[in-house]
């Protein structure tokens, strides 16, 4: 029973939503709105799950004094502190919460994202070697696209940005669409498997 009830819910709702996408009728639209209201009502509860998990994991680390448990203290302190700042002073501009956001959250996130530039550089250095004929094509394409992206490319020859555009629009897109069609079908198949109860791993455990 523990398995069957969720499966019945999934199957019924799943097929109802499939039907919904073909039925524009008001009844169908109203059902969808009604369902969305439930989603709105349920999702806030999930936030508490996340916060509880965070406290449990880090709390255990602190109480057991596992190596580097001090990081957990900082994590929890940050969480509590930011939340309190928001609750006490509000989130308008000029409040401590906003100040934290602008001076801690923003620069730190930007730093993480900026790391990408370095990693891409090193990944590119490793990847683009003319090891074989195909690899050489890849290498040339990469250089043209990179040049096409910056003014220097257009200054060298106006064909560089044009070729870069062609590479992106034709071979690149062709491959991408092929993968996307596969992905689309894979998604449909997985959804169908879930609807029919063939795939049940996500309910916990194996088959």
């Amino acid at each position: 029973m523990k398995r069957q009830i969720p499966l019945i819910i999934i199957m019924t709702l799943g097929f109802m939503f499939v039907a919904h996408s073909f039925i524009p009728h008001k009844i169908s639209a109203d059902f969808f709105d009604w369902f969305q209201d439930w989603v709105k009502a349920i999702s806030p509860f999930a936030v508490s799950l996340g916060v509880i998990s965070l406290f449990m994991v880090n709390g255990t680390k602190i109480s057991r004094k596992v190596p580097n448990w001090q990081y957990s203290v900082i994590t929890l302190a940050g969480l509590v502190f930011t939340a309190l700042a928001g609750f006490i002073w509000g989130t308008q501009s000029g409040t401590p919460y906003m100040w934290l956001f602008e001076n801690v959250q923003m620069p730190m996130s930007a730093t993480m994202f900026a790391l990408l530039a370095f990693y891409i550089a090193s990944a590119a250095y490793k990847a683009f070697r003319a090891r074989s004929a195909q690899a050489t094509v890849l290498l040339l394409a990469a250089i043209i696209v990179m040049l096409g992206q910056v003014p220097l490319g257009a200054m060298i020859s106006k064909w560089i940005p044009e070729t870069s555009k062609w590479i992106l629009n034709v071979p690149n897109l062709a491959a991408k669409r092929a993968i996307m069609i596969g992905v689309g079908l894979g998604m449909t198949a997985t959804s169908l498997k879930i609807l029919l109860g063939i795939e049940r791993t996500y309910l916990g455990g194996g088959d």
């Binding site: 999702s43 999930a46 936030v47 799950l49 996340g50 998990s53 791993t201 996500y202 309910l203 916990g204 455990g205 194996g206």
Partner: peptide, 21 residues
């Protein structure tokens, strides 16, 4: 490690069941 609240309990259940099985 999980980024989505709703994925969290499901992933927990999946791992727990796997250990039981």
């Amino acid at each position: 490690p999980v980024r989505d609240y709703i994925v969290l309990p499901i992933a927990q259940e999946v791992v727990k069941e796997a250990h039981y099985e």
